[in-house]
Design a protein around this nucleic acid. Structure first.
Lengths: 333, 333
DNA sequence: CTTAATTGTGCAAGCGTTTACAGCTCATTT
DNA sequence: AAATGAGCTGTAAACGCTTGCACAATTAAG
């Protein structure tokens, strides 16, 4: 990169004003005579002047950039969230630095430190699991942080979610209502806060409420193949209803069941916790908890803009409504 | 943001050296005595000094940040590409500024200018369609640009792709070989370079080669519903084979066909141009062109690092191999 | 033991902005 | 007519770092 072509200084010289005045014009400061403003704007246009955001960042200590921490973009759950974040960020003219924490090339703490070094004005974090080092880094820094579709253990950090316990309970009860008695749950990362402290808790409470015994918890069910392969075990353990936290494994189960002659929903009901496009592609269509992913992202970003602008937050923990979308993998009765 | 806690100046004072030396240590410059280096490193550690990347950027004119322009992250095609880019970027310690150009809140030229103002060291652009204003902006700037899974009209910009004409032809021939005579094509944006100058050209050539007449081109087939609704028309026009550029519409067609009693692949064969997870979820499984999306992204990013480091490029246009994955939506014979 | 070459280190001038603060010009008030 | 104050504009000091240049210290060569 060579020396910048046109700087604020060039504009100042051409417009016969000081850099300060040019800066004021660029930043929309009102304390500039209309006539002067017009002259400066004309020069800016003529010279194609564009402010150097890095220099602005250094001088003003604001970069209008936020960090977005995400485990896996190819997961529709996170990409939908990202879209909501991105749209609101664009409205408020923030750029997003994307930081993937999926591959273990870099420690999560270093990723966050890198963002902080770039002087981001704020951070949005999403992951099934808030790592200890991330949590510590967040509590240490003064840079605002919001969790989107993610929960921390002690609830210190601002976050946006749905009521997972309520949603899951509703799902379990739906299957129970159609007569299923051997209802299981399949989760991805069983140590993730959402699973450990919400989904699995809901499951246990459900079992107790109806005296259904120990139940069946399947862990580490992450992708299509995991679901497909899980089917054999479900059959063996005579599972007649299952709640699956991820969309792809749900599709795997359904497809395996269809191939092996198990009727869905008559012999096996399935509800998935994340309604994505997958849900309508697979046959039978999956009954699913429809999370307002886009909105979760959008609200999280809006919260972050408030925090970055030192505005007060009404609620630190925002809970958005969900819907249980009844399709063909549960009985319609 | 308050004034930075620990600056290079603090470290210099504590270590009894000049800022210049601290800077050299931080940047791994070899011209520092081991003893001095150790002393400085010790102080850095003790004070938890972290360099301010914005100041570094201003002084060095390098931000170790690249811009990534993408139309829609929830599209698996782009998120797979992004993953490849991200991984390589991380290896080379570049951060990624994500810029979505899907919503029309901002003109594409402004998005690019914003990236340039942030002094990104390079840009990777992906989109079905390289807009005129983007192309002009790219040719004007000295900042290196690489296209990933995208083509420009005149081939001036470095890019990474597969041979679409070859892949599509292979797909058409596969259907022709199983006896289909009324083969159609369904594209998303028919004005996109890839479609207009590659896929549709391949289609026309195929028709001519086998004297199949005018053929049928369906345009603007973008999502699941578009595909689902297209089925009626296919039936009416007695289409017996179709090549679809996107994955979700393909699934829509298959599902509609199954519901309406059309047998796939006996009565209707379908090949999709982009093999994503969707392909294996839908039944029958879709025959698909498997593009090496991750690799396209990775290679594009690697090319960009070379351009940013002023290294020479062996090839300006990289063409990666693809595979035609034969599944159940084409006859196995 | 001088002289030349090779490190190692500091000085200070940037990089392109923002932003107190001060000062100047006029209109308004007394 | 002097004083007050509002509205504009300029001066210059940051912001935190890199880097060319000069010079000191060390080592190698003659």
């Amino acid at each position: 990169m060579q020396k910048q072509k046109v700087t604020i200084y060039d504009v100042a010289r051409e417009a016969k004003v000081s850099m300060a005045t040019v800066s004021r014009v660029v930043n929309g400061n009102t304390n500039v005579r209309q006539e002067t403003r017009d002259r400066v704007l004309a020069v800016i246009k003529r010279l194609h002047y564009q402010p150097n955001a890095v220099a602005q960042g250094l001088a003003s200590k604001k970069t209008t950039t936020i960090g977005l921490i995400v485990p896996d973009l190819t997961n529709l759950y996170f990409s939908e969230l990202s879209k909501g974040i991105d749209d609101i960020a664009m409205i408020y003219k923030y750029n997003i630095i994307l930081s993937s924490i999926e591959n273990r090339l870099m420690r999560e703490g270093d990723v966050i430190q890198g963002l902080l070094n770039k002087q981001v004005d704020g951070i949005i974090y999403m992951s099934n699991r808030l790592s200890k080092e991330a949590e510590e880094a967040f509590l240490r820094t003064k840079t605002p942080v919001v969790l989107a579709g993610t929960l921390d253990n002690d609830g210190h950090l601002p976050s946006v979610n749905i009521d997972y316990i309520k949603a899951d309970t509703e799902a379990f009860e739906l299957m129970y209502a159609s007569g299923k008695k051997n209802i299981a749950i399949a989760v991805g990362d069983s140590e993730a806060v959402i699973n450990k402290q919400h989904r699995l808790v809901a499951y246990r409470r459900f079992l107790e409420a109806h005296h259904l015994g120990e139940g069946h918890v399947y862990r580490n069910i992450q992708n299509y193949a995991d679901g497909y392969n899980l089917y054999a075990q479900l059959k063996q353990e005579k599972i007649d209803g299952i709640f699956v936290t991820k969309d792809l494994p749900s599709a795997g189960i359904v497809n395996a069941a269809s191939e092996k002659g198990t009727k869905v929903p008559e012999d096996l009901e399935i509800i998935t916790a994340t309604a994505t496009d997958i849900v309508k592609v697979v046959r039978p269509k999956l009954t699913a908890v429809k999370q307002p992913l886009y909105d979760i992202g959008a609200v999280a970003m809006r919260m972050l803009t408030k925090l970055m602008g030192d505005e007060p937050l009404e609620d630190k923990k925002v809970v958005l409504p969900y819907a249980l979308e009844k399709n063909d993998s549960t009985s319609t009765r």
